[in-house]
Amino acid sequence: MFAKFKKVMLVFCSGALVLTAAGCGGSADPVEPTKSSPAPTTTATNSPPPVSSSPTAKPTPTPVPGSSKGPAKNWPVPKMPDAAMKKSEAGIKAFAEYYYALIEYTIQTNDTKPIKQVTKRTCVECGSTYIDPFDNNKKAGSWLAGADIKAVITKTILQPDQGIALYTTTQGEMTLYMSDGTLQGVFPATPKPAPMMMLLKFEKGWLVESMEYLDEKS
């Protein structure tokens, strides 16, 4: 699925209880009346502890990668870094790294929506390798375990409305399981880093226009 090569050129309630004590008692001899005085009062305050205005944050579920026991769970959607939104060589590098985080997310979850949002359909390699197969996996209920795809950016080039990223990728072993947990196949890890090129188009942000494998220099 992944190990192939193409030749290219380049997110008050305070209840106060008031107690009134009224002195009341009997005596054998009458006593002269005295001026009445206000009965002493005692105020007891029993306030509940203050309630926090913000709800208690729920702990973030631990991501569980796919395995023979089932597909990945709680896998977080990668968040695009601010740097990846900039039209600069640094922005190209940040975006290319972000895109590969999306590839890893897609492989683990069969969720292609995030990667589609930053991919032009002109990118044949993106569709045939990183989008369409996982849409099909989702429909079939099958899943992949493994992958661990990484990209190392070696050079970026900024043009008026385009960007180019040159990089190498590595991929760990991947195992495909069918919906009933049956082992369907194993994709071996890449024996060494593969050189690639990513062509980007800037349209209010970077979009992947094409991806190609490059010939290695002899």
Rank of each mutant, 00 (worst) to 15 (best):
P30K: 12
P30Q: 09
P55R: 04
S27A: 13
K35H: 03
K58W: 00
S36C: 02
P65K: 02
P33R: 14
S52W: 03
P49H: 02
T20M: 09
K58F: 00
A44P: 00
P59L: 05
T45Q: 10
A44E: 07
P50W: 04
S53A: 13
S53V: 06
L19V: 13
P38H: 04
S37Y: 06
S67K: 06
K69C: 01
T34I: 04
P33S: 10
A57W: 00
A21H: 12
P48Y: 05
K35W: 01
G26Y: 08
P63W: 02
A57I: 01
S54E: 13
P48T: 09
S36P: 05
G70T: 07
D29S: 13
P40A: 13
G23D: 08
T56W: 00
K69I: 01
A39R: 03
P59E: 12
P61Y: 04
V31H: 10
A39T: 08
L19A: 09
G25W: 12
P55Y: 01
P63T: 05
P65D: 05
L19C: 13
T62N: 07
T62E: 15
E32V: 11
C24A: 13
S47H: 07
A28L: 09
S47G: 03
S53C: 08
S68P: 01
D29L: 14
S54H: 10
P40V: 05
D29Y: 07
P65F: 02
A28C: 00
P33N: 11
A22C: 11
G66I: 00
P48M: 11
P30D: 07
L19R: 14
S52N: 14
G70P: 04
A57S: 13
S37E: 15
P59Q: 11
S37P: 03
E32L: 14
A22D: 13
V51P: 00
P30E: 12
T34C: 00
G23W: 03
G25F: 12
S37R: 13
T41N: 03
K35A: 12
A44W: 09
K58Q: 12
P50Y: 02
S27Y: 00
P49G: 03
P61L: 02
S67W: 02
T60H: 04
A57F: 03
S52T: 07
P48W: 06
T42H: 10
P59Y: 00
V31M: 10
K35Y: 00
N46H: 08
P38A: 15
G23K: 10
G26I: 04
C24T: 10
P50D: 08
P63G: 07
T41I: 14
S54M: 12
C24H: 07
